[in-house]
Design a protein around this nucleic acid. Structure first.
Length: 496
RNA sequence: CGGGAUGUAGCGCAGUUGGUAGCGCACCAUGUUCGGGACAUGGGGGGCGCUGGUUCGAGUCCAGUCAUCCCGACCA
């Protein structure tokens, strides 16, 4: 028994936060390591969560006028050199295809790359698709009537990361990337901000993850962007996590790929661009935002299974009786669009199931035995608070619906409280260092606006400027590091 | 790419001074159980990451190599 617990138990957060995270991802069945370095297997349970994220986001994209398309996985190497800062940003982490054929070696025993099948021009496995897409947009855009062009792509991308971690940083990851083209800068900026708001709404309403909206410093900007907007979330260990980005690309890519349109006066102008994306990184954020030492905790809106019903019984007659008496509950919940499962697996006992569904983060667990039926009641346990309550079997559906909403709100409120409490206004350098080192969270401090200071702070504390909050208060002050003049505070934190 | 660690059954691990692999969980069968990770009995499964040495004999010693994890520098 103790052996069993050792095998199944999750490392507590306060013992080893990183191990706790790994344990949850593995033991809740979200993902697994693969035979390929840095690449993971997303298991069915984890993938179902990703699919739900996709469905909800996809609807939000379509409701804001976007359509989906698909562009190639491979990008000719030459495309990358067309936008200078873009190459610089991605060159160090690209997977490159150089050959297109294998053969048996001379001894006929081993498969080797056929040197004669060398590609004329190497292909890059996309780390992001701006280049191939803008190369395509060149032929799609001639007139202002072709604009705006609002396209999204769901895809996998590869960035050859040196050090990887399940969901948070993998060599291959899944994401969506929106790439839009506009006639004016103002319209493109409006789009960039609109999509940032879509992301923020999704994070907060669906994933119950409160975020701070802001813009990146030039140093932290996306390679090739004029302005990078982001939403930043806070994990339970006090580290920040970028939950989504939206970039105003100006005319950089239009110029690089020569994409011009004729305006109403017949004059040729370069197109204005945006790109925006969220990735399976969000899965990591979801895990780390709400889960506890018993396992995963999922907000009802994203949980693959919202309600599990566990019959407690002896013998086959009892199960059948229980199943008959509560069938109406399953039916009604389904009618209300609530996902529910009755787990009558005979091989496991109730206690085992209780632990298992806690591990996998199912928001509501219902236990029902003969004793309950006699009293016309069922036991309802909520995953977020780990509390149990007996409720009448007369009208349970309304109670459950309300409870799901309540859990969703509670998870958000808890995370929001943590985020708000983590933000420290700091004026002294020593204090900044101390808070970053011990308490974590966001430090709101004056910054002189130079990349030099930003890098020094990073070197000395490992904290980066996560963002300059939108609509940030403008106030006179002295930079927390250099003491030089500053016009506003920015948010510092260590980050994933 | 630097530092640390680990590769033995599906999973988690143990294998004494080298002697021809074992434990728990899981799995299969039967029975008893079933309100917080059940129990009994009986089964099946691996040749120890890979390569090459030393030796009568190698998970055990030596050399090399590969992979993975953790910690750093880089990133969503």
């Amino acid at each position: 028994m103790s052996q069993l617990l050792t095998n199944k138990a999750i490392t507590p957060r306060n013992k080893d936060y990183s191990q706790w995270y790994n344990d949850i991802v593995l033991k809740a069945g979200l993902a697994d390591y693969s035979a390929v370095r840095g690449c993971m297997i997303i298991k069915p349970y984890g993938y179902t969560i990703w699919e739900k994220m996709q469905q909800i986001l996809d609807k939000m994209f379509k409701d804001t006028g976007h359509v989906n398309a698909y562009f190639p996985l491979f990008i000719p190497k030459s495309f990358f050199s067309k936008e200078a800062s873009h190459v610089e940003g991605f060159a160090k982490e690209c997977a490159v295809v150089t050959h297109y054929r294998l053969k048996l070696d001379d001894e006929g025993t081993e498969i080797v790359v056929d040197d004669e099948a060398k590609l004329e021009e190497e292909l890059i496995v996309r780390p992001t698709s701006e280049t191939i897409i803008w190369n395509t947009y060149k032929s799609w855009i001639q007139s202002y009537r072709d604009l705006p062009l609002l396209i999204n792509q769901w895809a996998n991308v590869v960035r050859w990361e040196m050090r990887t971690k399940l969901f948070l940083r993998t060599a291959e990851f899944l994401w969506q990337e929106g790439h839009t083209a506009h006639a004016t800068a103002a319209e493109a900026i409006e789009e960039t901000e609109k999509m940032l708001n879509v992301y923020a709404e999704f994070a907060e309403n669906t994933l119950a993850i409160p975020v701070i909206k802001g813009v990146k410093t030039p140093n932290e900007r996306f390679a090739g962007a004029i302005e990078t907007y982001c939403i930043e979330a806070l994990m339970q260990d006090g580290k920040a996590l970028q939950a989504g980005t939206s970039h105003f690309l100006g005319q950089n890519f239009a110029k690089a790929f020569d994409v011009k349109f004729a305006n109403k006066n017949g004059e040729l102008e370069y197109v204005w661009a945006t790109s925006w994306g969220v990735s399976t990184h969000l899965m990591g954020a979801l895990v780390m935002s709400h889960s506890d030492d018993l396992g995963l905790v999922l907000p009802p809106k994203i949980a693959p299974l919202q309600v599990v019903v566990i019959p407690v019984y002896k013998g086959i007659e009892e199960v059948e009786e229980i199943k008959t008496k509560i069938q109406f509950l399953l039916d009604e919940l389904k009618q209300h669009g609530i996902s529910v499962k009755l787990d009558d697996d005979d091989k496991q006992r109730p206690g085992w199931k209780f632990a298992e569904y806690e591990m996998t983060g199912v928001p509501i667990r219902i236990a029902v035995g003969r004793r309950d039926l006699q009293n016309n009641q069922i036991e309802i346990a909520r995953r977020d608070t780990l509390t149990k309550q007996m409720i009448s079997l007369d009208r349970p559906v309304e109670y459950i619906r309300n409870l799901l909403e309540e859990i969703q709100k509670n998870l958000y409120a808890k995370a929001k409280k943590r985020l708000d409490a983590s933000i420290c206004k700091v004026d002294k350098w020593e204090e900044l260092k101390d808070i970053i080192e011990t308490k974590g969270g966001f430090v709101y401090a004056h910054w002189d606006g130079t990349a030099e200071t930003e890098l020094k702070i990073k070197e000395e504390t490992k904290a980066t400027i996560r963002c300059i909050p939108l609509h940030n208060l403008q106030e006179e002050g002295a930079c927390v590091y250099s003491g030089k003049h500053s016009q506003q505070r920015v948010l510092f934190a260590r980050a994933y």
